[in-house]
């Protein structure tokens, strides 16, 4: 009874928030609770972030905890790693995921390896928040989805919320564990996705996918911005008598394979949808994992609906990203196999 009461209060009061507000709220809560937490990055301080995710933090917590940095991603992440291994809890922002590559060496060769290389003496509790994905007419340098590179790196966790509720709860959970997390935020849905979010403190546990729509004919697997497209698509399938189950992975790595397999073994069919280019994208790993573990339960090979194997285009971006017609063709392929 007591446990229930402890859980209940944060849910009591809610407020309509978009993803930006939810992220901002999570940062404020944790910065008030834990003096080791700070944000840093290009324009995150006085300006409040190009997408306004850090708005008000400089005013409330001052320049030592909302740090404007020079334009040097390698410098931002390198400094944050130093802070993290010496006891602070930095939340670094990379303004667009496309700019993360100058910091790639720091993330892959340093942050991801510190715990292992120091025999557990130096955990690296660093969060890197970064908006990813297309659909804002940003061209190649403001539209990429580079999650696969980080999934391939042992030592990193990769999180990607789709909703304001999950954005706040996952970010709070990420800031309270000890390993480096790449936190991809779906920029196209930053303001478009709105929902009721508890105003208090709560966590959404990492490494747990969510079944957001139950169904019996096919499992649709997505995350981040594409989860919204896939969810709408599932409703149109229902009108044609096709009952789709929709999974929002939420944490991409380590992946919640238990939830995926449970769903796929029930439906016998799976379609994975992501924006990143197809070859060696996360869809390939998911497909391989499903096939390896559930081959005899499958009625058809797992399908992938992805971005094309080209750089992200400016004018053709809506043809590049998975469309309803391509998703429908993939679902039909699994049903008619």
């Amino acid at each position: 009874m007591q446990a229930v009461q402890q859980k209940a209060p944060p849910m009591a009061q809610t407020q309509t928030m978009n993803i930006i507000q939810a992220v901002n709220d999570a940062l404020k809560i944790q910065m008030r609770k834990d003096p080791r937490v700070l944000v840093m990055g290009e324009d995150v301080g006085k300006f409040g972030g190009v997408f306004r995710a850090t708005q008000g933090l400089y005013q409330e917590f001052g320049p030592n905890r909302a740090i404007d940095t020079p334009l040097s991603e390698g410098g931002i992440i390198g400094t944050a790693i130093g802070m993290a291994i010496y006891g602070l809890r930095p939340v670094a922002e990379i303004q667009f995921a496309d700019y993360i590559f100058p910091a790639f060496d720091q993330l892959v060769n340093e942050a991801a390896k510190y715990r292992y290389r120091s025999g557990g003496q130096y955990p690296c509790p660093l969060i890197v928040r970064t908006p990813y994905g297309g659909g804002i007419r940003g061209g190649h340098y403001h539209s990429q989805s580079p999650e696969a590179y980080f999934i391939h790196t042992p030592g990193l966790k990769v999180v990607c919320p789709a909703t304001p509720y999950d954005a706040k709860g996952l970010l709070l959970a990420a800031m309270r564990q000890d390993d480096p997390v790449i936190f991809f935020e779906p920029k196209r849905m930053y303001r478009a996705a709105k929902g009721e979010v508890p105003t208090g403190d709560y966590e959404v546990p990492l490494e747990q996918a969510k079944v957001t729509r139950e169904g019996k004919h096919v499992t649709l697997i997505a995350w981040g911005a594409m989860w919204h497209t896939v969810s709408e698509f599932a409703e149109t399938l229902a009108k044609d008598g096709i009952s789709a189950e929709v999974l929002d992975l939420r944490t991409l790595w380590p992946v919640d394979l238990t939830t995926i397999l449970k769903s796929v073994e029930k439906t016998g069919r799976a379609v994975i949808v992501h924006e990143a280019p197809r070859t060696c994208g996360f869809g390939a790993e998911l497909s391989a994992l499903i096939h390896e573990r559930a081959m005899l339960k499958l009625e058809a090979p797992v399908q992938r609906v992805t971005g094309f194997d080209t750089p992200f285009p400016y004018s053709l971006e809506h043809d590049y990203m998975p469309s309803v017609s391509r998703m429908r063709a993939a679902v039909d392929r699994t049903l008619n196999y």
């Binding site: 497909s287 391989a288 992938r304």
Partner: peptide, 16 residues
């Protein structure tokens, strides 16, 4: 490394 590797892409293509 296995996760997210080239081997996953080849495995997925063979299955497909």
């Amino acid at each position: 490394w296995r996760s997210g590797s080239l081997s996953a892409e080849i495995s997925a293509r063979v299955m497909e």
